[in-house]
Design a protein around this nucleic acid. Structure first.
Lengths: 337, 337
DNA sequence: CTTTGACCCGAAATCGTTTGCATCAAAAAT
DNA sequence: ATTTTTGATGCAAACGATTTCGGGTCAAAG
């Protein structure tokens, strides 16, 4: 493990550590020949500067935290791919955390990150997050913070989402046009912004067409897959069962497939469904699923670009308090036809 | 941003930084009353030790790197969930990198990690990895290293895989029993260990049943989804097309679904398929897919347990040079019946 | 002949912790 | 009464990099 550090390098070259440092950082104070000599030797000895020494001195870590509610989810995976695409060019590293939709875990993770370990945080809040004092702490500590998808409106920073309202609206209209009269809305939690926007779109669409709807058509699901399947199956068994379903997140669409199987109901004959989902194989399901998919990769890369601008250029202002919308795409398939 | 550090804390308490440090680390040298006073003040001022100063001093980072070939893959996501489950308890952080199946990217990522940034590396090598000098460098530098799934046999460390040979064998026999005579094997690359083992199982099963097979039944696919679909479609259009397919990785099964659709062939009527896959919704596909799924979460958590033992206890030996097998599960579904 | 400035480099401080060693008072042992 | 032990704390060095400050050389300018 005999680490080769800058002092060792300096000794080898019969130079001082300061000169070596400057040479490696291409300082104007060092002569060309010396620079070359240093760089050559550094390469030969395979010198790698100690990241902690540097971080300590520079007060920055070249590391970004990404906090997501769950890992087994195409949307979030794609977003991270998008982020990495950009940050890798700049030599930044990604610490990835999953909250598993648990607020307590979220609070804990966030608290780990307040000591300068990361230069910025990119996050999508858990569905259970109601109190947001931990997020306010992050903001007030001055850690650059960006939200996406599940955003927290109260914190004045930049947020990236898709046109959720519009797509909730469009999807509902699509179902109405396909003849649905009793359209249910499945959501994870009232807390999350994304669900609320999609819900508003749904409600406004019904209103526009003068369709009545009842409170219990808005179904609050939980984190438990089994519980959700049971809940949805119960709804499908009911006398006043839906003829249309709008699932605000992918996992609820999946649960609905299982529930449909259990109740022996068939899409799109017995009811139709549209879901927000970034599943790649939506077209291979039985029946294939009509989806509204967000430009996940682009959301990730756009966020990263904004971050890199802020972190690598001097005198950058704080992130503006605004919401950036990136359009989703609707793919019509069998489940709603 | 006025950071509260140990010096500030010491001044407030009218103690020296060393005493404060020892008190916070619960050293026996410090009296109980002082300890309490220090801890109380630390809490009040919300003191968070600077991780870089600590890492620099301690020569360890409490960070582990996880390197995977792709993010949009249930198997890898589950593995990471498993790792995180354990490491989080110990206060370790996870740097996650994707190579996108690209060796050059893999080399670059690995080289970033040789400077002590991480205390250990957990990885699954890219399908293109043939030369392994970069991995040897990691090993020789003494960075604890564990492989999983796509392992590198040449490096003498602990590796975690599933019973791939056995399952390749079983899956093939299953297809044979279902009447298949011309079973093709789809693989990503000859380089990856996992593919080789599964292939051996396939070959031995055919041999056992005295079934002849031709070289071109072993199909080498690429990274491009489209190219794979075209390739498989071409095979399915062929006169000597397969009546059974064993896909050694999930993405090739997906490609086969698309190819089948293109060629208007139907599973399981025209050909049957079994795939290695950790897809959760294999049962919802049309037709539902017979899968061999690895205990991904457990693989992750077992690796993490081994790591934590090594990293948190004193005088731990290097990882043994051995392969740990964790049994997969086969779920028979329509695609092979 | 002195001054100026460009150029190249080194000593030492700094970032925030941890820790080996020194200190020093009080209690215990002689 | 003197020495030894014990317990609690402080001083200063270290970890490995960057950077401020300053020193020296040499050529051009005054």
């Amino acid at each position: 493990m005999a680490e080769v550090n800058i002092k060792y390098l300096a000794a080898k070259l019969k130079l001082s550590p300061s000169t070596v440092s400057r040479a490696l950082n291409d300082s104007y104070e060092i002569s060309q020949p010396t620079k070359e000599r240093v760089v050559a030797m550094a390469k030969e000895l395979n010198y790698q500067p100690n990241p902690f020494a540097r971080s300590l001195r520079e007060q920055k870590s070249k590391t970004i935290a990404v906090i997501i509610p769950e890992r087994i989810n195409n949307f979030f995976s794609q977003v991270i791919d998008g982020i990495e695409e950009i940050t890798q060019e700049y030599g930044y590293h990604l610490l990835v955390y999953s909250t598993h939709e648990n607020v307590e875990t979220e609070r804990k993770i966030v608290s780990y990150l307040l000591n300068g370990r990361v230069d910025a945080i990119v996050m999508s809040v858990s569905s259970q997050t109601k109190k947001i004092d931990h997020l306010e702490t992050v903001y007030s500590k001055g850690v650059p913070l960006i939200f996406f998808d599940r955003i927290c409106q109260e914190i004045p920073t930049t947020k990236f989402i898709s046109n959720d309202y519009e797509n909730g609206f469009k999807a509902t209209i699509h179902l109405i046009e396909r003849g649905c009269k009793r359209i249910f809305f499945l959501m994870l939690s009232k807390e999350i912004s994304i669900g609320r926007e999609r819900l508003r779109g749904y409600q406004d669409a019904l209103k526009k067409f003068g369709l009545p709807y009842e409170e219990n058509w808005i179904v609050q699901c939980s984190q438990s897959e089994e519980a959700n399947i049971k809940l949805i199956a119960k709804i499908l068994y009911g006398l006043d069962r839906p003829d249309g379903i709008l699932a605000s997140v992918e996992k609820l669409a999946i649960a609905t497939y299982h529930a449909a199987r259990e109740t022996k109901l068939e899409m799109p004959k017995d009811f139709k469904m549209v879901s927000f989902s970034n599943m790649k194989i939506a077209g291979l399901l039985k029946p294939s699923l009509t989806t509204i998919s967000q430009p996940a990769f682009e959301i990730g890369s756009e966020m990263a670009k904004l971050l890199m601008k802020k972190l690598t250029k001097p005198n950058q202002p704080a992130f503006e308090n605004k919401v950036i919308q990136m359009p989703s795409q609707i793919d019509f398939r069998e489940s709603s036809n």
